[in-house]
Amino acid sequence: MSVYRIGDISKMLELTADTLRYYEKLGLLKKVNRTASGIRLYNHKDISRLKFIKRAQKMDFTLAEIKDLLQMREDPQHARIEVRELSHRKLAEIETRLKDLTTLRNELTLLVNLCLGSDGGCPIIEGIDENS
């Protein structure tokens, strides 16, 4: 099984070494394995957990919420009721955001297709100018 040093993980996941140490201090990461000389060695489970943390942060989840969700992730059958409820709420938030992103994607797809089809000028810019 591959293991990685903090520098490798930092580059791989675009997280600073300080952030990685901070996550461990907060308990978002389980205690990372170390060599005899104290060098952290991250395994694939740590990486998976860190990727989850990154995704959740992009959704503007707080670190406290992420910590709870990680519990759910680890042991969904025995998660506390509050944690289950939090997971449901966060799932609903994600569904709403997905819907908004899909609409935005479709709007931009349509506008991009319009520009491709136009010989002279960009109908998007002209349309915006006319409306403003």
Binding site: T103, N106, E107, T109, L110, L111, N113, L114, P123, I124, E126, G127, I128, E130, N131
Partner: peptide, 13 residues
């Protein structure tokens, strides 16, 4: 361009 929301809602791409 003028009715973008309506077009997108209908699925126009």
């Amino acid at each position: 361009v003028e009715e973008l929301d309506y077009a997108v809602a209908l699925g126009v791409l």
